[in-house]
Amino acid sequence: MGRRGWWTVAGAGGSAGLVLVLVAVLVDLDTADRVASVTGAVVGLAGLVVALIALHAPGTTAPDSRRVRARGGGIAAGGDITAPGAPPRTGAAAGPTTGSGQRDVSATGRGSVAAGGDINGVDPGQGHRP
């Protein structure tokens, strides 16, 4: 949503608030209560509709995202892989680098291991043991 859309939403919200205050001051509190209840129900339903539309909208991929695939018993991760009981890492900061240099990660076949980051404590020669 652009700047114009946000200003429209802000104007509509401010106007609704002003109308509710004017109803409470100029008419009576019972009428203001009813108007606020109806307004709240309408806004709640509008929020539900927006959420459902966003839920079913086709997703967009971030420019630095990657696909991760593991097939045939392989192990694949978009970031680091650390085996249970492996010693803690020392040195450089953990995690894969970000940016346009990222590639898809794929591990195909029993015993194959692939990671978008570091592999710590996994011996690819030992194979995958379920």
Rank of each mutant, 00 (worst) to 15 (best):
D104L: 02
R103S: 10
G40D: 11
D33L: 08
V19G: 00
V43E: 07
R67I: 04
R103V: 13
R69K: 08
A46W: 12
G99M: 06
A94K: 15
V21Q: 07
A70Q: 09
G44W: 05
V68L: 01
G85E: 15
V35S: 03
A86S: 07
A114F: 07
R89I: 10
A93V: 15
T90W: 01
I81Q: 06
G47M: 05
S106P: 11
A114L: 04
G17D: 12
I119M: 00
V19F: 09
Q102I: 08
I53W: 07
N120G: 06
P84T: 06
V23D: 02
A77C: 12
A86N: 09
P124A: 00
V25R: 11
Q126L: 13
G79K: 05
S100H: 08
A12S: 07
H128C: 10
N120Y: 03
G73Y: 05
S106Y: 08
G125M: 07
D64F: 03
A114C: 04
G59V: 06
G116P: 07
G59L: 04
G72S: 10
D104F: 00
G111K: 01
T97N: 03
I75M: 01
L52A: 14
D64G: 03
A10F: 07
G11E: 03
I119C: 01
A41D: 07
G59W: 04
P96C: 00
S112W: 01
G95Q: 05
G91Y: 12
V122M: 01
V25D: 08
G2S: 09
V49K: 01
V19A: 07
V9G: 00
V42T: 10
G125I: 01
R67W: 02
L52R: 13
M1I: 10
P88W: 01
A70Y: 10
V23L: 04
G101Q: 09
R103N: 12
V38P: 12
G101I: 05
S15T: 15
A62N: 05
G117E: 08
R34K: 14
P63N: 00
G85N: 13
G121T: 14
V50D: 13
T39A: 12
S15H: 03
V27P: 05
R103W: 05
L45K: 09
A77F: 06
V50S: 02
L18S: 09
G117L: 03
G125S: 15
A62Q: 07
V38H: 09
A36L: 14
D30S: 12
A107N: 15
A107I: 14
A94H: 15
S106Q: 15
G72Y: 04
G17H: 08
P63C: 00
A94W: 12
G47R: 02
L55T: 15
A46F: 11
A115G: 11
G44C: 03
P87E: 14
V113G: 03
T90N: 08
G44K: 04
L45Q: 08
A77D: 12
R129M: 03
A41R: 09
L45F: 11
T60K: 06
R66S: 06
A70L: 07
P63R: 08
L55I: 10
G121V: 13
A54Y: 09
A32R: 07
T97K: 03
L45E: 08
D28G: 02
G5A: 15
V27K: 01
T31F: 02
A83E: 13
R3V: 15
V68I: 09
P58R: 14
I53C: 00
T108P: 03
T90F: 01
Q126E: 15
R3W: 09
A70G: 12
G73N: 10
V35Q: 05
